[in-house]
């Protein structure tokens, strides 16, 4: 019994390794870019995406549908990006007050990243609107898929997307 279960486990591990390699080759770069639209630090984007790969690999034997591995990866990236932002928000809340003439911690963090007007405008959106816009118009996901990743209803995705689009239209007026 033990030998059999060990053999099955070994098969799953081999399968997971092969899938990991394929998923990395095909989607790693696009997932980094997806994370870059949700976060602002490219180093953290890489950490988030790598952590997502490690988690999906560990859960490979429990995946219901392995054809949806990319969807699992995207959802994990979005969830981890949320956690990262939440942690950063808590850290900012408890950071010491800056001197009046010094740059704020938030500005300091943003100063580390390469930014342009689109990314800056995106970061000014509320988190839900930002996620809806990125998933719909960068990851090219359907409203249903985006709703599944965000954990909300399709109607909410529609509303978030509409508001985000309107808000970005105002902010990016100069670029158009």
């Amino acid at each position: 019994m033990y030998a059999r279960s060990a053999a099955v486990r070994s098969d799953v591990d081999r399968d997971a390794d092969a899938a990991l390699t394929a998923l990395y080759s095909e989607h790693y770069r696009s997932l980094i870019r997806l994370a870059a639209l949700l976060l602002d630090d490219i180093g953290q984007c890489e950490e988030v995406v790598q952590d997502a790969y490690i988690r999906v690999h560990a859960a490979w034997g429990r995946l219901d549908d392995r054809d949806k591995a990319l969807a699992y990866l995207r959802q994990t990236v979005v969830n981890l990006a949320r956690s990262t932002l939440r942690r950063r928000l808590v850290a900012l809340k408890h950071a010491p007050k800056p001197m009046p003439d010094a740059a704020s911690a938030e500005e300091g963090a943003y100063a580390r990243v390469e930014r342009d007007a689109v990314v800056a405008a995106l970061r000014e959106l509320p988190r839900r609107q930002r996620e809806a816009v990125v998933l719909r118009y960068y990851a090219d996901m359907s409203e249903a898929d985006a709703a599944s990743v965000m954990g909300c209803s399709v109607g909410s995705v529609k509303a978030y997307t509409s508001r985000g689009l309107a808000s970005l239209g105002t902010k990016l007026e100069g670029l158009r």
């Binding site: 870059a36 689109v118 995106l122």
Partner: peptide
Amino acid sequence: LLHAAVDDLRP
């Protein structure tokens, strides 16, 4: 605009 903003990122 979104693609143009991040497509030059190199992991």
